[in-house]
Nucleic acid binder design. Structure first.
Lengths: 241, 241
DNA sequence: TCGATTTGTCTAATAGAATAGACAACTATT
DNA sequence: AATAGTTGTCTATTCTATTAGACAAATCGA
């Protein structure tokens, strides 16, 4: 993609250039191993100075997206986006199977709290009811791909936090409670910039974009069992409905 | 939301502050008519200078999101995000009915071209087959909410462009071809920054985020009829699956 | 081995981002 | 009418972003 110079828009030119090149890579226009245009050509394409382009490339190199080799050129290192299928039967680990060699999920923290109006409504509880809240992070092939916060009824799942820390998979934890099947009731998708904590945890550069999904899962009889707020780096994941 | 100072990240502090305040507004934390915190308070909250906050507020005022009144304070002007429901039976105009008073769609341009590999695959055509491409823009209550590009088989819909310009509604155009019902086969959702043309057409400020949906619609016998690439400003729209 | 091409490093100059302080103009309350 | 609180405007200073030019260091093919 070509970005015209967008002076004084509050976004530095080198960042716009980095975003544009990254988009070409994760969008599939540039494949792994391809050589990028030379710095001089890129500078002309973006109507910028070569030093500005170099700064953009330095950011992408730090992210592991490209690698420069003196005398040869700059080459694409990373792969394209993962696709996370979302439907009535949405399973995180199943959906990504085959797209990554390794998929690890971490529990960052958990606590018992009182449901806000939003969460109570989603889970069909009274506002202020006790809920379990767990913070998680998922990593595919060494790259963080999701940062999620999940709320569940404390009455139904008092020790959810312990179990998810042990089993990693939400599906298996539900199974351990005797819930053999569950379905996605609703998914609300938005997008925004990552805040500072998310930027750090997901290993992003400042200003990165997150796809945000608010999902409610229900058991086979239609009773809400979990409300999850997941943040996916838009440069690493796309959602397929 | 609180944004810690994020020095040298390539995104100006005044823009980060504007984005954070806009997110509070479109996310529903601040309702229309509410008074914002004073500039001095905001400056402290974001660990920034009052002048920097003023610059952020100036941007939001230009967008029509807030309005400052000397001696009184700064007030929220705009409404929250629209929700676009996506499912097997996805209809743009129906989905937004009741959320906006007016909904107008414009045809910007159209042309006949040869299908790329991606488009041919989506429409079940041979690469290079003739397709109709139309560019559109939709505006709700005076605010642009989507910029879309649609491809259709030229053989099946040779004068699609004329009809959409006249009827505005895709559903009605399909009906005029005798397609009484159609369904959404797949929707691929990603997010990225708006480019310069999109920024201008959608009336956004530079660096704004777009939700991007790639959708394939099929007729009642499962034959693909359209491939649409729609870009929604993340600050004005969310997608509900 | 030579020459062309490409990335790496250095210095320097100019425009924009952010901070700091002071005071004017306006509003609402007492 | 007086006062406190708020937005509007001005000047000045420091740090970053961007441009510009020059040359070194590495690679590759003729």
């Amino acid at each position: 993609m070509t970005v015209s110079k967008d002076v004084s828009g509050g976004v530095a030119l080198w960042r716009q250039i980095a975003d544009a090149i990254r988009l070409d890579i994760v969008g599939g226009k540039l494949a792994s191993g391809d050589r990028l245009a030379t710095e001089a050509v890129l500078a002309e394409r973006f109507s910028a100075n070569r030093h500005t382009v170099r700064r953009a490339l330095a950011v992408l190199a730090e992210e592991g997206v490209v690698g420069a080799e003196q005398g040869r050129g700059t080459f694409v290192r990373s792969a394209r986006r993962l696709s996370y299928p979302i439907g009535r039967r949405t399973r995180f680990r199943e959906g990504l199977r085959g797209q990554a060699d390794s998929l690890t999920s971490y529990s960052l923290s958990d606590r018992i709290e009182n449901a806000t109006a939003t969460i109570a409504a989603a889970l069909g509880l009274k506002p202020g009811a006790k809920v379990v809240r767990t913070e998680g992070l998922s990593i595919a092939d060494g790259r963080p791909i999701s940062r999620s916060t999940t709320w569940l009824s404390y009455r139904l799942f008092p020790d959810f936090a312990e179990r998810i820390a042990r089993l990693q998979s939400t599906t298996e934890v539900f199974a351990s409670y005797g819930i053999v099947d569950y379905a996605r009731a609703s998914t609300r998708i938005s997008a925004r910039h990552a805040d500072v904590e998310e930027t750090k945890l997901l290993g992003l550069s400042p200003g990165a974009i997150l796809l945000v999904s608010e999902a409610v899962d229900v058991d086979s009889s239609g009773i809400p069992i979990s409300y999850a707020l997941s943040r996916f780096p838009a440069e690493r994941m796309e959602l397929v409905v």
